[in-house]
Amino acid sequence: PVARLHGNAGNLPDLAEVKGQESARRALEIAAAGGHNLLMTGPPGSGKSMLASRLPSILPPLTPRELLEVSMIASLAGELGEGKLTDRRPFRAPHHSASMAALVGGGLRAKPGEVSLAHNGVLFLDELPEFSPQVLDSLRQPLESGEAVIARANHRVTYPARIQLVAAMNPCRCGHAGEPGHQCRRGERCVTDYQARVSGPLLDRIDVRIEVPAVTAVDLIGPADAEPSAVVAERVIAARKIQEQRFLELGLACRTNAQAPASAVETMTRPDARGLAFLREAAERLRMSARGYHRVLKLARTLADLDGQDTVGRIHLAEALSYRGEDVSRRAA
């Protein structure tokens, strides 16, 4: 059958439906603009899954080349039904009971897994610590290289897996740690044991880590004046165009700041004198890894692109550092 392009893959959930959560909406926009990995931590019902499901509505459509890659993987996995194609980016949300073969690929015919089916799109992992630790750590290599390698005794298959990882988790097993008026019977141990299920090396690959507090009744009663996805998408597309032009001038085959190789990070960032001094002091005080340092620079570059500025300033670096998570603020304290 002849393939047909369906540009509007149904009515996508809109950001206008999200009330409150201004800081989470800002983080979602930044993640979309630069293709950055995102982790949201918050109690049940705070809107983490709701926010994640609205990410596709602010992402730019697939380019013809990306569409071809996505369709080929879907065809290999037997998921290209009735020859229908869409220029919407893939959004895959596997259940936390998913095996390593289901997530990274494998089985008798070494089929592509969820990480490859999300190529050029989003892989959303809800209840992140509920995934098996071995399954989560198998994501480290695809996140770094953009490829999923399935090795067997008699053959080796490589599938593309250039994804944007979006994850959500509760702060502890009971889900309400840190909430006013709530006291967990297991205390601090409930938090540390639960969060320790996600390894440090995997967390180091996540650029934007935010807390999503519970929404109050006041937020729900208030007027619905939130920006719709179409308005946010315009800013995201403008920032992406700046990145594409920059990578074209640098002769690099990447499309977003998050995909930029380490060798090009300092060339494309070039913070001003105040920003450089601030970053040097922060790197020493927070004992940042080399990967963490480069990821902060990439994130700051995205923030400057959203502002339409050529130079990465101290304000962009400070905001980028604030998204590195609780471990950073704890060390700073």
Rank of each mutant, 00 (worst) to 15 (best):
P1N: 13
P1R: 14
R4C: 12
N8F: 09
A9E: 13
N11L: 13
A16S: 15
K19C: 06
K19S: 13
G20P: 07
Q21I: 07
R25P: 01
A31F: 12
A31H: 11
A32D: 03
G34C: 11
L38N: 09
T41E: 13
P44L: 09
G47M: 06
K48Q: 10
M50R: 05
L51N: 06
A52Q: 05
A52Y: 09
S53V: 01
R54D: 00
P56A: 04
P56D: 07
P56F: 01
S57L: 00
S57C: 05
P60L: 05
P60S: 10
T63L: 12
E66S: 08
E66G: 08
L68T: 12
M72Q: 15
A74Y: 11
L80K: 10
L80M: 13
L85W: 07
T86W: 07
R89E: 02
F91A: 02
F91V: 07
P94L: 03
S99L: 07
M100V: 06
M100E: 15
A101M: 02
L103K: 01
A110L: 14
K111W: 01
G113L: 11
S116R: 03
L123G: 10
L125V: 05
E127N: 05
E127A: 07
P129D: 09
Q134G: 08
R140Y: 00
Q141A: 14
Q141K: 04
Q141N: 08
L143Q: 02
A148C: 11
A148T: 11
A148M: 11
V149Q: 04
V149A: 05
A153L: 14
N154C: 08
H155N: 13
V157C: 00
P160H: 08
A161F: 09
R162G: 13
I163N: 12
V166K: 02
M169E: 08
C172H: 09
H182A: 10
R186T: 04
E188V: 12
Y194H: 15
R197Y: 07
V198A: 09
R205A: 05
D207N: 14
D207M: 11
V215E: 06
T216W: 09
G222T: 03
G222C: 00
A224Y: 08
P228W: 01
A230S: 15
V231Q: 10
A238M: 09
A238H: 09
R240D: 00
Q245M: 07
F247P: 05
L250T: 09
L250F: 12
L252V: 14
C254V: 15
R255A: 12
R255V: 08
Q259Y: 04
P261F: 11
P261N: 10
S263V: 14
D272E: 10
R280L: 11
R280Q: 15
E281W: 10
R285K: 15
R287A: 14
A290P: 00
G292N: 09
Y293A: 02
Y293M: 05
L297D: 04
A304G: 01
D305C: 03
D307I: 01
Q309T: 11
T311G: 00
V312C: 04
G313F: 00
E319G: 05
G325F: 01
D327S: 14
A332M: 14
A333Y: 11
